[in-house]
């Protein structure tokens, strides 16, 4: 009996996209220009320096936030990427990931904050996020191609739509999870809502928000192959090629490069969320705190005590 009925949902969406292309093309051209400009700038920044210089820089960053083991791991992993001749592709993919993640964060964090402060916004945003996250990622590519043409931009846009959800969710969760009494304390001393957000809610929600950042980056990276299908290039392009030619060797090399990139990005962003005590950066920071308080006699007793609680400081480098 339902055979005769056809819900014209697809037709409706088509009409909508057509209307948008006809009337809002200026807007989409602008977005395209901005995204493309940022991607190209990032790609140049990553590929222009010699590979070994980039590896050294990334190695030092990894060491600073996580310690020598992470530093060595990063250098070895990236050398493997260079040796299988995937360096330029990897940097292209890194540029795409970074730009997509940046945009996703710019949307996700404010949205998450808003959702945390208003139950209404939260109730509206949640189903939309569910939709964005569960809709097969391929589907985003179709309107993206129509709106932005073939190339890296539709890949980035589709990636943003797909990767944004956990950023919003975890930001909201983090802020809502801050101890109610501490927020009350801020209010009780007369702090404004903006100040409570900046000085209490965001700092205390930071570990959770950083998990969201980590998730966004990981999901962005997972979109690499799909984005390559619309011409985004990078490692994904080689994987798509390898699939078409049934080239196991190329597929493995490009795939392994994605894995190495993913592990490095994951560990780095994870470490940023909760700077580990023994990381060189954290040690530097605690030293600076002790130095700042140095004029008072009391801190003389504090500095050595702080060193005692930090086992890594005793074992040293």
């Amino acid at each position: 009996m339902l055979d005769d009925v056809r819900l014209p949902l697809g037709a409706g969406v088509e009409t909508g996209v057509e209307w948008i292309t006809a009337n809002l093309s200026v807007l989409f051209d602008l977005i395209r220009t901005i995204v493309l400009g940022m991607f190209e700038a990032a790609e140049v920044a990553f590929t222009e320096p010699p590979a070994l210089v980039m590896i050294a820089i990334l190695g030092v960053v990894a060491f600073a936030v996580r310690g020598w083991r992470m530093g060595v791991g990063t250098v070895v992993g990236l050398l493997v990427v260079v040796l299988v001749d995937q360096w330029d592709n990897a940097m292209g993919t890194l540029a795409l990931t970074v730009v997509a993640a940046l945009f996703a964060l710019l949307i996700a964090i404010p949205l998450g904050i808003w959702a945390a402060r208003s139950d209404t916004v939260s109730a509206i945003v949640r189903p939309i996020l569910d939709f964005l996250q569960t809709m097969p990622a391929f589907v985003y590519l179709i309107p993206a191609i129509i709106l932005f043409g073939i190339g890296v931009v539709p890949g980035i846009i589709a990636t943003i739509a797909f990767a944004m959800a956990p950023g919003v969710r975890l930001t909201e969760l983090g802020i809502r999870g801050v101890d109610r009494e501490i927020v009350e304390a801020g209010a009780a001393f007369g702090a404004s809502p903006g100040r409570i957000l900046r000085q209490i809610q965001l700092p205390l929600a930071l570990p959770t928000i950083m998990t969201g950042v980590n998730q966004i980056i990981m999901l962005s990276l997972s979109m690499v192959v799909i984005a390559a299908m619309v011409g985004a290039g990078g490692l994904g392009q080689d994987i798509v090629q390898a699939l078409q030619r049934i080239d196991v060797g190329l597929g493995f090399e490009a795939g392994l490069s994605v894995v190495i990139l993913a592990i490095i990005l994951d560990r780095l962003t994870n470490a940023l969320g909760s700077l580990q005590r023994h990381s060189p950066l954290a040690r530097l920071r605690s030293r600076r705190v002790a130095a700042a308080g140095a004029p008072t006699p009391a801190t003389g007793t504090v500095a050595p005590a702080a060193a005692e609680t930090d086992p890594a400081a005793l074992t040293g480098r």
């Binding site: 009494e181 501490i182 009350e184 304390a185 009780a188 001393f189 209490i200």
Partner: peptide, 11 residues
């Protein structure tokens, strides 16, 4: 001003 049961200090 106010003093809280679970201290509510900024950690």
């Amino acid at each position: 001003s106010m003093v809280f049961q679970h201290f509510a200090l900024l950690p």
